[in-house]
Computed example of a mutant assay.
Amino acid sequence: MANEHATNKLVLDRRGFIKLSAAAGGVLFLGAGATACAPAGNGNGNGGRAGYAGDAVVTGLASLIHSAPFFIAEAEGFYEEENLRIEHIQFPGGLDAVRGVESGIGLGTTSTIPVFIAAQSGLDIKIIGNVYTAASVDFITVPDSPINTIEDVRGKTVGVSAPGSNSTYFAERTLREAGLIPGEDVELVAVGSASDSWTVASQGVIDVAWSASPLSEIIDAESGRKVIWRSRDFVTEWSDTCLVATGDFVDEHAEALRAWKRAIGKGMDLISTDLERASEIYGRAIEIAPEIAFEALSNSQDFYSLVLTEAQIDAVIAAGREQGQITRDPDVDAIVLKDFA
């Protein structure tokens, strides 16, 4: 299930990724190709405090709220404290990000369901930790709409990205849990990206748009929006994005991965303890006003965690099976490395 929440802010080069540096204030660096990770420092391959330099895939880097701890870890020197030099590389969707990790980059973060899809097809991908634990799709409309609750969408139209996307899954699931039958009580309309969804909703073509933070907060600041419901209000156990690495990378650079997790954990801690400072860094990195970043992070403050629970794993697998993307029981113990996750 590719994570397709995206704004129109990014333009990918022909190789399909963009490097972003929080330290450079959100400046975009177009990459000519993925650089394989390699140890730095003494070159002993142990990583961690012995030194490590390389790239890390981050799906939805500049467009999704789960990326905030990565920007913070870089900008606040948490990577440097762990003797890491990590450069973030954006990939547009979950499966693309998994393939990027597996093709030579070695580590990154991606939507969680695509990891199990990739493992099913034989890719050597391991989950080493959680990142964002909330179902991230929101459903919004224009401020003067008569729609105020999910029950009010009976007989209305709701925009989703495309069949098989996160937005479609959560629209169908939350509507059913509210007692509505998708396709009968509510028409789902494929409209593309979250920004496209808002455009057609604001023009009155559909009644409700799908969205995700921080785009939802950006829309609110620019034109106003009304949140009708959030998927996380119905889906209480979830892993939206997780930390991953190839099996070979785990074997060769286990300490580097632990150091990376510690640095990201410090970024998460800053969001919990100093929201104003975290918002300043995040807003600068993705080029939005700090007050918008503050609102976005305050709405997500409780959903950052490195801990991956069995209930979250079960929920993700069940969603993949329901969508027909996971067709057999995965070997969870082989995919989720409990010593890490």
Rank of each mutant, 00 (worst) to 15 (best):
L275K: 04
G247E: 13
N42M: 14
I313P: 08
I127P: 07
R85N: 08
A334P: 00
R230L: 05
I317S: 15
S103W: 13
F70K: 11
S231K: 11
E276Y: 08
K19Q: 04
L337G: 02
S202V: 02
K226L: 01
Q301T: 11
P290F: 07
D331W: 00
L270R: 01
I281R: 09
P146T: 09
T327H: 10
A311C: 04
K9N: 12
E80W: 09
R262C: 06
I326V: 11
G54R: 03
L337I: 13
G183E: 00
E252A: 11
A296D: 07
L64F: 10
I150P: 06
L95P: 01
P214H: 03
V11A: 02
G108M: 05
D329P: 00
E74H: 07
K338R: 15
A212C: 04
D240N: 15
S167L: 00
I140P: 07
T236S: 15
F116I: 06
S121I: 06
V115H: 03
G104P: 01
E82K: 11
Y132T: 00
A97V: 08
V235G: 11
T174C: 15
A315P: 09
E276N: 15
G122Q: 06
S197W: 13
L10E: 09
A212F: 00
V158T: 05
N299H: 12
A201R: 09
S145I: 13
A221T: 02
A296M: 02
C37L: 08
G183A: 03
D339T: 11
N299K: 15
L175N: 08
E280C: 10
E322N: 09
D240Y: 12
I86W: 10
V57S: 10
A221M: 09
T157R: 12
G159M: 02
I206A: 02
Y282L: 11
L61D: 09
L61F: 13
G320T: 12
I127N: 10
A23G: 10
L12H: 04
P214L: 00
P143M: 07
G324Y: 00
I317W: 14
S300W: 05
I281G: 10
I140T: 03
I326D: 07
L180V: 00
N44D: 15
G45S: 12
N130V: 03
L64Y: 08
S195M: 10
A334L: 05
A209F: 08
F139M: 05
R154A: 14
E87K: 01
R154Y: 08
G100H: 14
A162P: 01
K19W: 00
I219R: 13
A209E: 06
A296H: 01
A134F: 04
G51Y: 03
R230A: 06
P146V: 09
I117F: 05
L61P: 06
N83L: 06
A201D: 06
K9S: 10
F340S: 04
R173I: 02
A209W: 10
